[in-house]
Structure formats: C-alpha cells, structure tokens
Design a binder for these strands. Structure first.
Length: 500
DNA sequence: AAGGGGTGCAACCGCTGCGGG
DNA sequence: TCCCGCAGCGGTTGCACCCCT
C-alpha cells in the first residue's frame, strides 16, 4: 500500500484525479459536489487504486465505519459512499479472509443456501472473514460449474427447506400458462435461488429415473410395448402407483432455464404445477407443458403440445452391468480438484442429454414421460369410475422381466448394478421435498462411485425403434402399431390430468 | 504466438427497509 | 403521515486472467 498517513488530502486528490476513470457518467445517484474543492466532480468508477484504498482506510481509522457519504467531505476520494462502503466491506476491513473457500466453508454455504436461499449477508455472518459478495460469487460460480456438469446443486443429505416461498411464488403467478412478473421470474430463473434449485433437484431426480426407463427401453425392444399395454390397461405389470410421489420432470436445470415466460409467454409456470410450489395442488396432480418449444436442447424436443406426469417410482429394467447401463449412470468428467461436495454430488449425477440423430424426433426419454402420465391418468380414471386397482399393481415385477426381457439382459438379481438402480427406483421421493421433512432428498440414492467415475459416452438412439417412435408421437403411432385404444378412457384420463 | 472462449472476481446498479425530520 | 437520505442487500455486469486450440 503506497499510501502514507502523512500525505495530505490534496496530494492524494491530485493522485486520484490524475488517475480518473474514463467513466464519467454517473447514473447511480452518487454524484455530488466535492466538499472543499468548490467544484463539481463526477465520481470515479471502476477498480480502486491502492491510493484510494489508503484514503479510505485512513478515513475509517479517523471516523469509524458508517457515514459513507461523508467520505467525500472529509477526504479527497471521488467515490460515492456506496462505493466506499462496498470497498471497505469487501476488501479493506480487517480480518477479511482471502483465498479459496475451505471445504468446511463450502459445506456451510451449501447447507445455508439450502436453508435460506440467496441470503448472502446472513451467510456471511456465519463465515467470519468472508463477505456476502464473496459467497455470492462462489455460489454463482459453483452453480454454473455444476450446471454444466449436469450435477444437482445440493449434495444428498443437504436438506432443502423453504416452505414459504412456494406460496409466495405461487401467488405471483397467474395461471397455468404462467405470467410471472419480472422480478419473480428473475428470482426464479436465477439458478442460485434455492427455491428453484429445490425444483431442479427434484427434477433431476426424476430425470435419472426417467433415464432408467429410457435406458431400459433401449435395451428392451418390447419395453415400450409393455408400457403401452400398461397404458391401455392390458399389461400385466405396472409401476408402483404412489400417486403422492408424482413429480414433474425435466431434464436438467438448463432445460428449465429455457422455459422462461420471457422467452415464451406460453411457457408453463412451475409454481402452478410443482407439488412443492403449487400449494393448492394435489400432489398427484400433473404438470402440463403447454408449449414445449421452450425445451430447446433436444431432451424434450417437440413442437407438439405435451402432457406429462411423472412418477418417481418408475419401473426398473434389467440391463447388463457392463453394457449400456454404464453409459448413462456414469458421471461427466469432474474437475481434477473435485472437492468434497462435488464428489458427494457425483452420486446423484444424472445422465447427459442423449444424442439423437433425428432432430425432430422425441428422444426415448419421452417414453417415460408420456407413458407414466398416461398410466397415471388411467389409474385416476379408473379410480374415478370406481374401478379398483389391483393391489399388486406395482413396479415391473422381476417375474415380468424374467420372462419378457431379451436374452441379453441378466435376470433380476444377477446384476449388482441392476440392484442399485432397482433399489433406487423403488425409493419413494422423500416427503421433505414437499413437506419440509428432514430426510435427504436423495436418501438411499446410492450408486457405486467407481461406476460413476467413468466417462460418459453418448447413447445414440435409433429413431426407428418402436419405443422412440411411440414416444415421438403417441397419438400418431398408435395406428402404426395397431394399438387400439379406448378413446373415451383416454379423454377421461386427460381431462383428469388437466384438472377435470 | 495469437485469438477465442471460459472463468472468477470486483464493482456497479437498483431496490428495499429504516430512521429521522 | 409523508418525505428524504442512508445503509444494506441481492442481481448483474465488466474485465482481467487463464487455458485451449
């Protein structure tokens, strides 16, 4: 620091003034006349010099913190009080801790963010020597990094609780088509926002389960037919009908970011449909994507209206432990200095987007979305009509797989990897996601780390595959596959899904 | 070596809440 | 009660640095 306490303010002023920033515009209300100089000076912007730092430090030593607007009066600093306060708080005040965050600090930040959202100042109070700006930057950097890697923001075990925001946010949204005021939308679309992250985490979870189904259908050519049979009520198996565990599903936060009302006013409103955010929604209600154009990167590529209901308990399929399963359950390459949290988060990595040859075709992951929606609709329709669901209706049974699966697929119980996924898929979504419980959102959601460390290879989807075709246009394909449906049942089901 | 993109940090900007006149 | 100024907070932006091609 070049500043000496003996320097006169005038000398400092000359130094600073000669180093004036080219920026002269001042639209932040910081303009003021410089006391004692008799001239009006535009306040300086931009990086602080060491000389300016010295002046500010000297001022604080003499007058204490606060009264930042008086800094100009008592010193030669051509900085507005706001800028001075910021500079002092973030860089000059004593006991500031510089450098990278320790793992403990990171842990605190993650946990605090899960609890309180973007309350940087409050977090800073819990981290002596750290500033809110520092924490904010860290978090924004972190979420960007994790977003790119397709990782959820919170590791398992971090309990995300924010019960009030749902109502608050929902009240700011109008209806199913979702007109969100700018500020709310900004808050929501900012991925650092824990409220949004809760959803993303939730969706992420659903996404992984979707990929279970997706991969299964890729391995089992008959799987989609089975699903179709399920939908039509002709199948012998189904998935566990935990209607209270239905979640909407998107592919990743990035996808969701694309679905902003600003970009497309017809985009849906999350709060209206997410069980956690739509306070008055029945948990078994479903979302409706009114315009899925907003999903732009191919995971839900469609120009058609899409309805989707998602159960988190999806049928698991058999697969080869060394085969395609590894393709999706492996994680994206993590940074070499992957920290503790990252390594933990690796457990809940979701697969990257599928690479699809035919850009206009659904990815097969949609199979799960549609199938589950329709199945749920069927269940509801049946209930509506007083039909009893078979008590045994549950996940695709091992028996089913043992008889229906292709010969290349190990039988249930033969594959450890399968058991992992099977177990995972059977795990109900923790109620805390919707009720603020204390369990981890990913409790029990464990995949062997060595499997996750493998580099992901894109799965190329055969767009001629029946399940893909089925997913791409369920309505259109039914004729092609000779599927006869009860249109009235479907209408009832969809009506139910739409809140009828 | 150059340039283009990614990343992280510092600072700015706008808004809100609070207290005093 | 209203207005105004100030402090603080959170979101956004600008820029320097780094890395990769």
């Amino acid at each position: 620091m070049s500043y000496t306490m003996d320097e006169s303010d005038d000398a400092i002023y000359s130094s600073i003034y000669n180093n004036e920033s080219p920026s002269t515009a001042d639209n932040n209300g910081c303009t003021s006349s410089r006391g004692g100089k008799g001239s009006v000076l535009n306040l300086k912007k931009g990086p602080w010099t060491s000389t300016e730092d010295g002046v500010l430090i000297d001022y604080v030593k003499r007058h204490g913190e606060g009264n930042w607007n008086n800094v100009q009066k008592h010193t030669s600093l051509a900085r507005c009080g706001k800028s001075c306060r910021l500079r002092w708080a973030n860089h000059l005040r004593p006991n500031l801790k510089k450098g990278a965050f320790s793992k403990e600090e990171e842990q605190v930040i993650v946990e605090m963010h899960a609890r309180m959202g973007n309350k940087w100042a409050q977090m800073a109070e819990l981290l002596p020597g750290r500033t809110d700006n520092e924490i904010k930057n860290y978090w924004n950097t972190r979420i960007k990094r994790r977003q790119r890697a397709g990782l959820p923001l919170y590791p398992p075990g971090v309990h995300v609780e924010d019960l009030h925001w749902s109502q608050e946010y929902q009240s700011s949204t109008s209806n199913i088509t979702g007109v969100v005021d700018r500020r709310r939308h900004q808050e929501f679309s900012q991925l650092g926002n824990s409220k949004a992250n809760v959803l993303f985490e939730d969706l992420h979870f659903a996404n992984v389960l979707f990929e279970d189904l997706n991969f299964a259908t890729s391995l089992l050519p008959g799987a989609s037919d089975m699903l179709a049979c399920n939908m039509l009520g002709t199948g012998a198996s189904s998935y566990t009908p935990h209607s209270n565990n239905i979640r909407q599903a998107f592919q990743s936060p990035e996808h969701f970011q694309n679905a902003t009302p600003q970009k497309n006013p017809r985009s849906f409103s999350i709060s209206d449909h997410h069980p956690m955010y739509g306070g008055n929604q029945n948990p078994s209600d479903v979302m409706m994507i009114q315009d899925s154009h907003t999903f732009t990167d191919g995971m839900l590529p469609t120009s058609k209206p899409l309805f989707g209901a998602v159960k988190l308990e999806l049928p698991s399929f058999q697969y080869s432990e060394t085969g395609g399963f590894d393709q999706w359950k492996t994680t994206t390459p993590s940074p070499p200095q992957s920290d503790l949290l990252d390594s933990v988060d690796t457990y809940i990595q979701s697969p990257p987007p599928l690479e699809i040859d035919e850009p206009d075709c659904f990815s097969s992951c949609d199979t799960g979305l549609l199938d589950m929606l329709l199945h749920e609709a069927k269940i509801k329709a049946s209930a509506k009509h007083g039909l009893l669901l078979p008590s045994s209706e549950k996940s695709f049974s091992s028996t089913t797989f043992a008889t229906d699966a292709t010969q290349n697929v190990p039988r249930v119980g033969e594959s450890e990897a399968f058991q992992n996924i099977w177990t995972r898929s059977e795990i109900p979504i923790p109620t805390q996601l919707s009720a603020g419980g204390n369990s981890s959102a990913f409790a029990g959601y464990v995949v062997k780390t060595e499997e996750l460390d493998r580099v992901w290879e894109p799965i190329r989807v055969d767009v001629t595959r029946p399940d893909v075709l089925l997913a791409s246009s369920w309505q259109e394909q039914q004729g092609r596959f000779g599927i006869v449906r009860d249109s009235s049942s479907m209408s009832d089901a969809l009506a139910l899904l739409l809140g009828g």
